[in-house]
Design a protein around this nucleic acid. Structure first.
Length: 167
DNA sequence: ACCGTGATTGAG
DNA sequence: TCAATCACGGTT
């Protein structure tokens, strides 16, 4: 699903799907309720817009790669890489049903830099359940501008690239 | 509205 | 080197 769709479509379609995290023997299953699309190097809010750096290197790997980075001295952000290898686009998972906010989500699911650049799947212990669920079939989406990216200027900061599942 | 917190970045 | 910034969250 990450390879064959545009980043915006991936962001939209991830809403309502189930994010699964293995921590020890336990599986945490969470319905994704909020995502944001970072659509490529032309998108001034996207990390790839300023070229390849050590931090954003995983964004240039194949679709389905996990891109986790640390910000504000405290928080890990979880992204899934999209589009063609070498392009530099991703979807930020901002929240699930029980964990609102990207920093709280990663904390709850024990997601940190050790997952960076790994692939979604059983091996890494983080994946998306392929089956749709009821919430996905009946999903009612709201689109808004992305959060916390005012630095990207008047055009990109206004794009409706954030998707939220209506409560 | 303000600030903690520390890695990352780009400028010098 | 170094200062500014930051895809946040908790508190005032």
């Amino acid at each position: 699903m990450f390879k064959n769709q545009k980043t915006l479509a991936v962001a939209r379609n991830l809403i309502g799907k189930i994010l699964v995290r293995r921590v020890g023997k336990r599986l945490i299953r969470e319905i994704i309720t909020e995502t944001e699309a970072y659509v490529g190097p032309h998108d001034l809010a996207c990390h790839s817009s300023r070229g390849r750096t050590k931090r954003n290197e995983p964004m240039y790997d194949e679709a389905g790669t996990i891109y986790v980075y640390f910000t504000y001295g405290m928080h890990w952000m979880l992204n899934i890489v999209t589009e063609e290898t070498g392009f530099g686009a991703a979807v930020l998972i901002r929240a699930t049903e029980n964990f609102k906010g990207p920093g709280r989500l990663t904390k709850a699911l024990k997601i940190d830099g050790s997952l960076n650049a790994k692939k979604l799947g059983k091996k890494s212990g983080l994946w998306i359940e392929s089956e749709d669920n009821k919430a996905n079939q009946a999903k009612k989406l709201i689109r808004t501008p992305r959060i916390g990216i005012s630095y990207s200027g008047p055009i990109w900061s206004k794009k409706l690239y954030r998707f939220v599942l209506r409560d």
